[in-house]
């Protein structure tokens, strides 16, 4: 009986813990957090940004975490899967390193640096929506060991430079959507709300051609 009693005690503790965690997650979901805000685009001041909408966090070791920026996470809508090159693969700048999939279509993101893939975030592969909810913290996608950090960072944007660039990108995107909207939607409402604010997840509603154009104009510019 003692063995069963111990087993039952452990199982009860695990069940209670599961329920406590679930309740806590629910509570956390209601807490407003700037990083998760849907009204604003967030740019961490200490992160490097590439012009293909990926961010890089330079680590103590010289390696970098790479993910997609808040702009992509706001405009893309839902994400069904993320495909990543395997750990150990050598990557060249401009070659695709990961794909974000939405149904049958995908966005292929070029590598912002030359280097070797050291690690892949298993959490985003398991729950791809993490990159939408928390693009800069838990939403990192891969870790790369750049061949030459010094020369790589020169081509990246940081601080005010990055924020100026992102503002410009958002403007460019607004123009892009205004131009393309009539082609896939007879009325602008599904994409543009009052005051010209781009509706979150606007790309989810666009047709294949617009999607490809977006990929070409915003993601594959290197």
């Amino acid at each position: 009986m003692v063995a069963l009693f111990v087993l039952a005690t452990i199982l009860i503790c695990i069940t209670v813990d599961y329920l406590v965690q679930k309740a806590q997650k629910k509570r956390e979901a209601y807490q407003p957090q700037v990083v998760l805000s849907t009204e604003n685009f967030v740019i961490p001041r200490g992160f490097f940004f590439s012009k293909v909408h990926t961010w890089l966090e330079l680590l103590f070791s010289g390696r970098v975490y790479v993910g997609v920026d808040d702009f992509v996470s706001k405009v893309i809508g839902k994400v069904d899967a993320i495909e990543v090159l395997p750990v150990g693969e050598r990557v060249r700048k401009g070659e695709p390193i990961f794909k974000i999939k939405q149904g049958n279509r995908s966005l292929a993101f070029p590598s912002p640096v030359n280097g070797k893939i050291i690690s892949v975030n298993p959490n985003v592969l398991e729950s791809p929506e993490t990159i939408l909810k928390d693009p800069y913290l838990n939403g990192w996608i891969i870790m790369i060991e750049p061949e030459d950090v010094a020369s790589e960072v020169k081509n990246l944007l940081i601080g005010n430079e990055a924020s100026r660039w992102l503002r410009n990108e958002i403007k460019r995107f607004k123009e892009f959507i205004s131009r393309e909207a009539p082609k896939f939607s007879p009325v602008p409402e599904p994409t543009l709300a009052d005051g010209g604010v781009v509706v979150k997840g606007v790309l989810q509603n666009v047709d294949e051609k617009t999607w490809e154009k977006f990929e070409k104009e915003f993601i594959q510019q290197l």
Binding site: F41, V42, P44, I170, L192
Partner: peptide, 15 residues
């Protein structure tokens, strides 16, 4: 240490 760009600030003009 992050900066927030308001969506309304960017898209203030009417389409």
């Amino acid at each position: 240490g992050f900066e927030v760009i308001s969506m309304r600030e960017v898209f203030k003009e009417q389409i």
